[in-house]
């Protein structure tokens, strides 16, 4: 059954019968808690990925690797990251694979990618809350492409650590204004820091935005944050 399904995968394309791939789906589900079975299905998926597949079939494989993929499949996924046609579905898997090799592949691709592909990689690093990405993302805050700088800010906000907040604060000082994405990211960081009981760090962020020179929306957000910090401290 599984052999037949992997054969069907080779010819699979938009409009093909999805039922023909059901044994692959079943094998992925059944591999839970069974390292050998998991290794086998992952190996078969990676082998399939390295063959000639339609875009649809390749995406199907990435969807399954998002569930069962390990460090072993990263070398098969990484080359797809910088190709606009395959980058998203490569991230579909890599974003979910907890292995540090997956995060490393995303970080490595940052310097090779550009435009929207780069934005996607940035967003995946943010979604993973990848602490090691803070320095490269910090550099991207100065990128000439405003969309990339915005993506980096939001990713640093999602990471939400004291380190990411520090990078954002330095960028804010350098900018000499209050770019909305950096402000939003810092407020996001403050919420995460407050939830982690790092009230001193969170309060410092809020205080900076509670000043009269800030837009009303930001000032109110900062004051709400200060109140929340104070009530948590009490």
């Amino acid at each position: 059954m599984l052999d037949t399904a992997f054969e069907a995968l080779k010819k699979f394309d938009w409009g093909s019968d999805l039922g023909a791939l059901a044994p692959i789906e079943d094998a992925v589900t059944a591999a839970h808690g069974k390292p050998e079975a998991r290794h086998e299905v992952e190996t078969r998926l990676v082998t399939a990925l390295q063959g000639e597949l339609s875009r649809d079939a390749r995406e199907y494989v990435c969807r399954k690797l998002a569930i069962v993929g390990t460090a072993a499949c990263v070398p098969g996924l990484a080359p797809l990251l910088v190709n606009p046609e395959s980058s998203h579905m490569s991230r579909f898997a890599l974003e979910q694979i907890p292995a540090p090799e997956a995060a490393q592949a995303l970080r490595d691709a940052l310097s090779r990618a550009s435009g929207t592909v780069k934005i996607g990689i940035i967003s995946s690093l943010g979604a993973r809350r990848d602490a090691a990405s803070v320095p490269p993302l910090g550099e991207l805050l100065q990128d000439g492409d405003a969309a990339i700088a915005r993506a980096a800010a939001l990713a640093l906000g999602a990471i939400g650590s004291a380190d990411s907040a520090a990078v954002l604060q330095r960028s804010l000082q350098a900018a000499g204004g209050s770019p909305a994405p950096i402000v939003d990211a810092l407020l996001h960081c403050a919420e995460t820091l407050m939830a982690a009981n790092k009230l001193t760090e969170a309060t410092a962020i809020y205080q900076a935005f509670a000043q009269d020179n800030q837009p009303r929306l930001v000032r109110l957000a900062a004051n709400r944050g200060l109140l929340a910090c104070a009530s948590k401290q009490a």
């Binding site: 839970h32 998002a66 569930i67 069962v68 980058s87 998203h88 991230r91 579909f92 890599l94 974003e95 979910q96 694979i97 907890p98 929207t116 592909v117 934005i119 996607g120 940035i122 967003s123 995946s124 943010g126 979604a127 969309a147 993506a151 939001l154 990713a155 999602a158």
Partner: peptide, 17 residues
């Protein structure tokens, strides 16, 4: 851990939360 992988999915570029 596998169920946790299904709590979210990568968004197609350039879309980001």
């Amino acid at each position: 851990a596998e169920a946790n992988r299904l709590t979210d999915r990568a968004r197609r570029e350039p879309w980001q939360l």
